[in-house]
């Protein structure tokens, strides 16, 4: 077998793994969009915020210490304790739920019935706000996140492929874990939305606000719940990406990576988010590998967008999205 083909296979596999991570972020978007019609640009920043909070809690940082020090002239940094990862994750989840509640109460309750594009712009504002808040609360330096996930090259795959092709594939353990977790997460979400009372209520709200209201579903509660679930997905995505490349500002840019995934898969479809993520992940890695060197490299920044753009011209609702019907 030729070298290029073997390399391509490795790139393909890595692309699949990257795609899973994109899909993970995209899932958060789809959830909120389906239930409330809000296209939440802040999802990426939520992941960053969740990861920052987790690190902050685990290290026992004092929130807003930077601000307090500057305003009062004190010098405080840490409480001096360390919290185990498991408890840290639960506490972070609590913070995300509170955040969801505030977001719903302060912002989106006042914007019910506005045009989708206004809501979209509001989430951009929210993204900016949370970016500043995260930095002020926990400081803007790059942090290491370690919740005990395995990292580094997977020896078993390396040896197995070496036996077959005479070349060991480099697959990161973390990517494998991420794939498994993403699969689990999707399973849990599907079960939640299909078989639980709250999940059904959520789908009802997504279908028709008025009808849901008239059968006695508490809209406010459902929306807080949806934002909490999105916060949970953001936390998982934040942990994965944070472990991979450190908790830093660029984490919030994964939202920009997830947007073309959504366009490709359709905004309203959970399977679409996953398939779209895989297509984009594989597509951009293969494009960079095969064609990138010819045109100057670093094509990953735009390839996904251009692919999604071309795709949308032919199918405006994405792969699995609901058909867009317009009435006058």
């Amino acid at each position: 077998m030729s070298d290029t083909l073997i390399f391509s296979m490795e790139v393909f596999l890595n692309g699949l793994m990257a795609g899973v991570l994109y899909a993970l972020v995209a899932l958060g978007f789809v959830l909120i969009y389906k239930a409330s019609g809000i296209f939440n640009y802040a999802q990426g920043v939520m992941a960053l915020f969740a990861a920052l909070t987790l690190v902050g809690i685990m290290d026992g940082q004092v929130p807003f210490s930077h601000l307090i020090n500057a305003a009062l002239g004190t010098d405080i940094h840490h409480f001096g304790w360390h919290v185990p990862a498991f408890i840290g994750i639960i506490l972070s989840m609590g913070v995300m739920v509170i955040l969801a509640w505030i977001v719903q109460k302060v912002i989106f309750r006042h914007l019910v019935g506005q045009e989708p594009i206004i809501l979209f712009m509001a989430t951009i504002g929210l993204a900016y706000f949370m970016e500043g808040l995260g930095d002020i609360m926990w400081g803007s330096d790059i942090k290491k996140l370690d919740v005990g996930l395995p990292q580094g090259i997977n020896i078993a795959i390396d040896e197995a492929t070496y036996g077959i092709f005479g070349y060991g594939f480099f697959i990161d353990n973390l990517d494998i874990v991420a794939t498994i977790i993403a699969a689990l997460l999707v399973g849990v979400l599907v079960i939640f939305s299909q078989y639980t009372k709250q999940g059904r209520a959520m789908r009802a709200v997504a279908d028709d606000h008025q009808a849901a209201l008239s059968v006695g579903i508490n809209l406010n509660f459902i929306w807080v719940m949806v934002w909490s679930v999105a916060g949970f997905v953001a936390l998982v995505a934040g942990i994965m990406w944070g472990t991979k490349s450190g908790v830093q500002f660029s984490l919030s840019l994964i939202a920009l990576k997830a947007l073309p995934v959504l366009m490709l898969g359709g905004f309203t479809s959970i399977p679409g988010a996953i398939v779209g993520g895989l297509i984009i992940g594989v597509g951009e890695k293969m494009f960079e590998f095969l064609i990138g060197p010819m045109i100057g490299g670093a094509t990953e920044n735009w390839f996904a967008y251009v692919l999604a753009l071309i795709f949308l011209v032919f199918r405006p609702q994405g792969l699995f999205g609901e058909k867009i019907i317009e009435r006058v």
Binding site: Q114, A122, L126, F129
Partner: peptide, 29 residues
């Protein structure tokens, strides 16, 4: 005037701009 570090001011600016966007969209579109 207050002598705060510049990075803190930059972060506050993010928060204020984001907050203003939301406020304007809600109160005065």
């Amino acid at each position: 005037t207050l002598g705060w570090p510049t990075d803190l001011a930059a972060h506050l600016e993010f928060m204020i701009v984001g907050g203003l966007i939301i406020t304007f969209l809600i109160a005065e579109p």
